[in-house]
Simulated assay, not measured.
Amino acid sequence: MSGSEHTLAFLLAFNGRVHHYADGYFVKFEIRQVEPTKERPHGLRYSFTLHGPGGERLIGFDNAHAVAPLGSRYKKKPVVTDHWHRGQDDEGRPYIFESAEKLVDDFFDEVERVLVGHGVSLDVVKVEDRSNE
C-alpha cells in the first residue's frame, strides 16, 4: 500500500468519529469514498467540523456544495465543491484539495487556532464512534 493509500484508509476509518475536548468543544468527522465526479474529482465526500459547547459550528471543511470565490459574489462558482467555513454563519470559501493528508493537517491547524483562541486544551478527553448511527 502506498503512503497516500495508507493515509486515505486511515482517514476513511475516522468516519463517524467524534473527538471531545474540554469545556464541551468537539470535532465530528464524516467521510466516505464515492465515485469521482467533476465536483469531487478526488472521490471523497467529507465534512469535518469543530463545534462549540452549545453545538454551534466554529470551523467546517466539506464539499457538500460549491461556494463563490472570495472577492466578489458575481464571480462564477467553481465546479469543484471543496470549501471551508470559518464560523457558524460563514457561507464558505474555496478550499484547494491536494491530498487527504493535507486536508487533515489544514483542518487541525484551524481547530488548534480556534481552541487555543478560546483557551481550550488540545488534549482529546473522549472519543465516540457514531458510524453506526
Rank of each mutant, 00 (worst) to 15 (best):
S2R: 08
G3W: 00
G3F: 01
S4Y: 05
S4I: 14
S4R: 11
T7P: 00
T7W: 05
T7R: 09
T7C: 07
L8F: 01
A9W: 04
F10T: 12
F10M: 13
L11V: 13
A13Q: 09
N15G: 06
G16Q: 06
G16K: 08
R17M: 15
R17H: 15
V18N: 04
V18H: 05
H19P: 02
H20M: 00
G24A: 10
G24V: 05
Y25P: 04
F26G: 00
F29E: 12
F29A: 14
F29Y: 15
E30A: 10
R32A: 12
R32P: 00
Q33C: 02
E35N: 07
P36T: 05
T37M: 08
T37A: 03
T37K: 02
K38M: 15
P41S: 07
H42S: 03
H42L: 01
R45S: 13
R45H: 14
Y46S: 11
S47I: 03
F48G: 09
T49N: 01
G54V: 00
G55W: 12
R57P: 09
D62Q: 04
N63Y: 06
N63H: 05
H65I: 06
A66F: 04
A66V: 04
L70E: 12
L70V: 15
G71K: 11
R73H: 10
K76G: 03
K76Y: 02
K77E: 15
V79A: 07
V80G: 03
V80W: 05
H83V: 05
W84Q: 00
W84I: 00
H85L: 01
R86L: 09
G87K: 03
Q88V: 10
Q88Y: 09
D90E: 00
R93V: 15
Y95W: 06
A100I: 07
E101D: 13
K102H: 15
F107M: 04
F108V: 06
F108R: 14
F108C: 03
D109K: 12
E110M: 14
V111W: 11
R113V: 10
V114T: 08
V114F: 04
V114C: 02
L115Y: 01
L115M: 00
L115I: 02
L115K: 02
V116C: 03
H118F: 14
G119W: 02
V120S: 01
V120E: 04
S121A: 14
D123M: 08
D123N: 11
V124H: 07
V124M: 08
V125K: 10
K126G: 04
E128A: 02
D129Y: 04
D129W: 03
R130F: 11
S131W: 02
